[in-house]
Design a protein around this nucleic acid. Structure first.
Length: 603
DNA sequence: GTAGGGTTAG
């Protein structure tokens, strides 16, 4: 709702009635500054100002209090009023500037913060340690690394860089601007970092997908007997989730229980997310059901969790429960629902949620919602619809959107459309090796070897690199990582013998290596088979079989989508070795049990 | 009620 300053000022003059209708002690007139502390609406605040003017008690200190009230939890109208007060001052000083900047910073308006800074410099005012947090936050939200660096220099010059409040904002600015190493430099310069600084750095690592460094700082912090708080736990839990480290996650859960952190809704939500992403949906559900108060994020976490585990019916059930308890859904809620539908091929339901999101709840779809819709249509085989959907978007499509469609083309073996889609991708970004691999696999499947060859050359010429497949498994609190092809040349370890043994047993049970999905055309079948054997997920599963007691569930996390051959193999492994295998790929979870997968081979 | 501010990590 937009409010003009004219309407504000008119309600301001209306506020003069305050003095007429209120009983004012004329002998001992009340101090307007004291009235502000009891004030609880903008309207009352204006009445207090009217009174202060009338009783000649309006001074700089009073105005500062007024502005502070407005910027404490700013709204559009409170900021307009604050700005009105500010503009009326003849010589605003740094204190006033800081207060206004705080308001703009809290209402995520970096542009106005920067404008104010320009004014500060023009007025020859010196920024102080109250000025920097707002400025640095503005850089963080607008990803302005260069401006952030300059502010960092200025803070050094003015000697406020090691201020209790400036330090964490500096770290946060650098991590938000994706310069995590610069953040670490700031952190390392602090003589005795406090919990807030640790939190800023740990959160930065977790957000920038560097969970190992986050966890190692967490350990360092504990070694120093610094007490983590609930905010520390949020980042540590999200690091566990990234790694799929269930053991550490469980330990954090115990820690949270012991130290009274489970009363925080956000900690519980992070626990739900962690358990779900570490493959233990049951634990996620039990945390969720035990929560007394569930907010939008908690419900969404559960909806997303069910979606990623392929339980669309439960996702939708959660949504119904959420609605019946009058909790408002947000964009993440719908992202979860859309993913739930796309993972299970519920095209009509997905379409319905998409339109309800827009029409019933007024949520503007983001690129991720569009991506989910493309996935929904494409994976269900409505490839042309998906193509048209992307073509008609109100925004220009990102390579990612086309990539989702390309992978759907691959699932449905539609080479013709895949070629068309690849063209669209390469126009935007030709450096992504995965795109060439998908297309190349499709050529191979259709026995068009000459195309496979030329595509490999193009890929090489354009210096496109493929992210290597990497799978990890946690055994006895240690996360072991395996890259595809590890040991292809020198397979001498116990693990490789176990792998050979595993494949031998699989073959006895009817496993036939699917050599059509290997990119290299010049390999013979034997070589192709070896390449497949050393896929990272097979290595990780073999490691699990070798190093965990019979009957233990094997939990593997993979950085890419699971390949068709490994999916087949995992199904058989669950059957012949009597092990549950929980495989998290970049897209979703696969639960293998008794020769079947929870995705029902739809992925 | 230290009577011009009250910040930082989610």
């Amino acid at each position: 709702m937009a409010i003009s300053s004219a309407s504000l000022i008119s309600s301001f003059s209306h506020a003069e009635t305050f003095t007429k209708h209120s009983k004012i002690d004329t002998v001992n007139p009340p101090n307007p500054i004291l009235l502000i502390s009891k004030c609880n609406s903008l309207r009352e605040l204006m009445q207090i100002q009217a009174y202060a003017i009338k009783s000649h008690q309006q001074d700089v200190s009073f105005i500062t209090k007024l502005i502070n009230f407005c910027t404490e939890s700013p709204t559009e109208s409170s900021m307009l009023y604050a700005r009105h007060l500010f503009d009326a001052m003849s010589e605003p000083d740094i204190v006033i500037f800081n207060s206004i900047a705080r308001g703009y910073s809290r209402s995520k308006n970096p542009l106005e913060v920067f404008n104010l800074f320009v004014k500060i410099l023009e007025d020859d005012l010196l920024p102080d340690n109250y000025t920097f947090p707002s400025l640095l936050k503005a850089c963080a939200v607008s990803k302005a690394l260069e401006e952030g660096r300059q502010l960092h220099c200025l803070s050094l010059k003015l000697g406020v860089d090691d201020n209790l409040y400036v330090c964490p904002t500096l770290i946060n600015m650098y991590t938000e601007c994706e310069d995590v190493d610069a953040a670490r430099c700031v952190f390392d310069r602090i003589v005795e970092p406090c919990v807030v600084c640790y939190n800023a750095m740990i959160t930065g690592y977790a957000r920038r997908n560097r969970p190992n460094e986050a966890l190692s700082l967490f350990r360092e912090m504990q070694g120093k007997n610094l007490k983590p708080n609930e905010i520390t736990l949020l980042s540590v839990l999200s690091s566990c989730a990234l790694l799929g480290s269930l053991d550490l996650g469980k330990w954090i859960h115990e820690y949270a229980k012991k130290h009274g952190f489970c009363k925080y809704v956000k900690v519980n939500t992070a626990l739900i997310d962690m358990f779900a992403k570490c493959g233990s949906l049951d634990d996620a559900v039990s945390i969720f059901e035990d929560m007394r108060y569930k907010d939008t994020q908690a419900w969404s976490a559960m909806i997303v969790a069910y979606a990623n585990h392929g339980q669309a019916d439960n996702s939708m059930l959660m949504f119904e429960r959420m609605r019946s308890e009058n909790v408002q859904p947000d964009e993440i809620t719908f992202l979860g629902l859309l993913n739930a539908c796309s993972h299970t091929g519920l095209v009509e339901e997905g379409r319905k949620y998409f339109s309800r999101m827009i029409n019933e709840f007024g949520i503007v779809p983001s690129i991720k919602h569009y991506g989910s819709m493309v996935d929904l249509l494409g994976r269900a085989g409505h490839l042309e619809d998906a193509y048209e959907f992307i073509d008609k978007l109100p925004i220009s499509p990102t390579p990612m959107l086309w990539r989702i469609l390309l992978s759907a083309c691959s699932s449905h073996n539609n080479l013709e459309l895949a070629e068309k889609v690849s063209e669209r991708i390469f126009e935007l970004d030709d450096s992504h090796g995965g795109d060439y691999v998908i297309l190349s696999n499709l050529y191979a499947r259709n026995k068009k070897w000459e195309y496979v060859d030329s595509l490999r050359k193009v890929m090489k010429d354009r210096k496109a690199v493929k992210v290597p497949g990497c799978s990890s498994i946690e055994v006895n609190n240690v996360v072991h990582e395996f890259f595809s092809g590890d040991g292809v040349k020198s397979a001498t370890t116990k693990l490789h013998r176990a792998l050979d043994e595993m494949v031998k047993e699989l073959k006895l049970a009817g496993y036939v290596p699917d050599t059509t999905i290997v990119v290299h055309a010049d390999m013979c079948d034997k070589e192709k088979e070896i390449t497949l054997r050393y896929h990272s997920e097979k290595l990780a599963i073999a490691f699990g079989l070798l190093n965990t007691p019979p009957g233990t569930t094997i939990r593997v996390v993979k950085n890419l989508r699971v390949c068709r051959d490994c999916h087949n193999a995992a199904k058989l492994i669950s059957l012949i070795f009597g092990r549950k295998v929980v495989l998290r790929d970049v897209q979703r979870f696969h639960h293998f049990e008794d020769g079947k997968c929870s995705c029902r081979d739809f992925w």
